[in-house]
Design a binder for these strands. Structure first.
Length: 270
DNA sequence: ATGGCCTCCTGGACGC
DNA sequence: TGCGTCCAGGAGGCCA
């Protein structure tokens, strides 16, 4: 799935097409997503003007006059801008038709994504308890240090916890820990402030670089134009088990953590 | 409260 | 060519 860079890439792709537009129709072909698509979604949003296409964590927030569409792409979702009346394909579950004729089309083979509507997004249970954005001023080494005291969970699990910091998924957790030289299994509560400063910087750098390259496409991520992202070409550890470390030539090792593939350099990461 | 595990679902890769 | 198995970018919810 789309991790934060892929969601941000999607947001930037759809924003110019939908901001200021009025929604003229909603077509739900399959409401069976992670949570059922609200049966009154069409009447909630039809005729409403889109104020902005925003993002919080990996949620796309389509702000309307009187509420917000909360969209998550799950593991396999994509949102594309359709301008040529192309017919819907398999797994094209939802169309948002705009007054301009442009269609925002949601495709999600695994259906782990969601489409919800709320009139108070800041108090929505999926949104209100999220940690800071990794690219904001509020996110830094001090924050990670403070929140990690007495935590026994491994550092990789810790930085993937949305209550700590949002938007760090499996690929970028692996990459950031490698850049910061921290072993993914190290206990979060036993890492120094200094090392947390390096880690916060590594997370920030990794995510920013991925956004600049349009996200990571491993199998099937496409942006709003249906194009892949290019960050996969510069991954340092994820998907590179058995390859030599770019720093020391030691062969990269793979372990499972929470059933997610975890790749690291046994020499550089302590 | 904390941490770890399961689960939702489809499809692609791989081995036999 | 076909079939079974495993794996995948998330993250809420449940259980100990």
């Amino acid at each position: 799935m789309p991790e934060l860079p892929e969601v941000e890439t999607t947001r930037r792709g759809i924003a110019p097409h939908c901001e200021g537009q009025v929604i003229s129709a909603v077509t739900v072909r399959n409401p069976s997503l992670r949570w059922p698509v609200p049966s009154d979604l069409a009447e909630r949003v039809s005729g409403k003007r889109i104020q902005s296409a925003d993002r919080r964590a990996k949620y796309l927030l389509i702000h309307l006059e009187d509420g917000t569409l909360i969209i998550h792409l799950g593991m396999s979702g994509s949102l594309r801008v359709i301008t040529d009346n192309a017919p819907p394909m398999t797994h094209d579950h939802i169309d948002l038709t705009l007054e301009s004729g442009t269609v925002l089309r949601f495709n999600d083979p695994r259906r782990f994504g969601c489409w919800l509507w709320t009139d108070s997004v800041d108090r929505h249970p999926l949104i209100e308890s999220l940690g800071p954005e990794p690219l904001s001023e509020a996110f830094n080494g001090e924050l990670l240090f403070q929140r990690s005291r007495s935590k026994k969970t491994p550092i990789k699990n810790f930085i993937m916890d949305n209550h700590v910091v949002v938007g760090v998924g499996n690929i970028y957790a692996n990459e950031a820990l490698f850049k910061a030289g921290i072993h993914p299994r190290r206990q979060a509560g036993r890492i120094s402030l200094d090392r947390y400063r390096r880690l916060a910087e590594a997370i920030r750098e990794t995510l920013s670089a991925a956004i600049l390259m349009g996200g990571t496409t491993l199998r099937d991520f496409v942006n709003s134009d249906g194009k892949p992202g290019y960050f996969a070409q510069v991954l340092l550890v994820y998907g590179k088990t058995g390859s030599p470390c770019t720093q020391c030539n030691t062969l990269l090792k793979e372990i499972r953590m929470n059933n997610r593939s975890t790749v690291y350099c046994p020499r550089c990461q302590r």
